Amino acid sequence: CVFIFQVRIPSKTDKPGGSPIRQTPRENLLPAPTVLPTIHELDLFKCFQSVLIHLQMLWELMLLGEPVVVMAPSPTVSSEIVLALVSSISPLKFCCDFRPYFTIHDSEFREYTTRTQAPPNVVLGVTNPFFIKTFQTWPHIVRLGEIKMAGDLPKQVKVKKLSKLKTLDTKPGNTTHQSPDLSLETSFIGFQRKRPSEVQSAILRRHLLELTQSFIIPLERYMASLMPLQRSVTPWKTPPQIRPFSQEEFMSTLDHTGPQLTSMLKGDWMGLYRKFFRSPNFNGWYRQRNKEMTQKLESLHLEVICDADLLGWAKDKSEVEIVDLILKLREKLVRNKLFFLFLFFLQMETVATLPRSQSK
């Protein structure tokens, strides 16, 4: 009996929920392969089944990069819950620190347990009862019991306000100082009793993906509008700059392009965006998108340079103008490490060294 195991390392270019890799003709001759899930494909329903009614709040806390402590009965439960929380905002990258299993021996123990400053933007998974008292001043605390494998919907626990928190309270539940900006009914997700956990998890993952996409698509659309028009990119000038991100201008677009058009959730979307702008996740997202757009702009500039008639342009230009263009091309060549520009560089350098009568 032949078994084929395929393991694929996720790429940053992967799209969540995309189709699996197709088999080659040679693979079709063999038994159907067993595809092992990646390390990011946790059983979300198994992880969140005891806190489903808090799902919306937990998603918002991850989106905003809020300080969260997860108190679990074992390192396994602690690690799975923290990783599930971090992955709940996929495909948006979680840009804060997170520790699936934090102990008193970690180097940041003193920093994270001090009460002289606000808690950092980090998600901590802990099991030591010592942390029950140490972290009681943190703004968001999630207490969990043992994770069960059953696909049935469990009895849900209620949210407690910090003012009602007992110092040595160890019962499962969620403690927070704020209410979610959006409202969610678990019936919207499509859970049904006695459905296999794998199916429930797939439904939950799809719901979280759609929720994050509804939130991020207006930002992506606005960010794309900051890109200069392609016709404004010319070979003889420095590429135009990407327009700066204006929070107020973006907020003014939400009435016509906001997430309320694609999501059933109601609530203060604008308030959620304003909080998101102050979070490390927004800074990380904006830096990455700005970097990608800058590279795209640089690529467009290189394309128009390659398509341009540089020798024809140089015929009626002064030697100073030609040398200036050569220096700019050389700088671009070094910055982008592109060898094919070297050919254009040689042509232009030859023209610049010729007597003016020959160059014309």
Rank of each mutant, 00 (worst) to 15 (best):
C96Y: 00
C306P: 03
I132Q: 11
H256M: 14
S187I: 06
C1S: 11
L297P: 01
L55S: 00
S299A: 13
Q241N: 12
P280I: 06
L61F: 11
P16G: 05
F135P: 04
G151L: 07
G267W: 05
W313N: 09
D181C: 14
D268I: 09
Y273L: 07
Q23D: 12
T167G: 02
V70W: 02
W285Y: 12
L327C: 06
I203Q: 05
G173Q: 09
R8Q: 12
I4G: 11
H207K: 03
S179V: 13
P119H: 08
T350F: 08
V123R: 01
K148N: 12
K171A: 15
L208Q: 06
Y273N: 03
T137E: 12
M270S: 15
M149D: 14
P73R: 00
T13M: 12
R278P: 00
L343C: 00
E108G: 10
R8M: 08
V70D: 07
G145R: 02
P259M: 05
V159S: 10
V77W: 00
T76K: 10
P20C: 10
Q117R: 13
Q156N: 05
Q178T: 15
K160Y: 03
N174A: 14
F188V: 14
P16T: 05
S88C: 14
P218Y: 02
S74P: 02
Q200I: 11
H105D: 13
E210P: 02
A118H: 07
Y273R: 07
K315S: 13
R289V: 15
P75I: 09
S79N: 12
R274T: 11
K15D: 11
M223P: 03
P25Q: 08
S225D: 07
F277R: 04
S359W: 04
R195K: 10
A202L: 07
V122W: 00
S197N: 09
I53Y: 01
N281L: 03
E60R: 00
A118M: 05
D106Q: 10
T13Q: 14
K360Y: 07
E220N: 10
L153Q: 04
P154N: 10
P91T: 02
I326N: 05
K237A: 09
F345P: 02
N283M: 09
L30R: 15
L297M: 07
Q247L: 11
V77D: 08
T103F: 04
P172L: 06
L165W: 12
I326A: 13
K332Y: 03
R205L: 13
M270V: 10
N281E: 10
E319F: 03
T170W: 00
P172Y: 09
F102H: 05
S74V: 08
G125M: 01
K317E: 06
N28I: 01
M227K: 11
F345K: 04
S183L: 03
L211A: 05
I104K: 12
G258M: 01
Q213T: 14
F191W: 06
F340D: 13
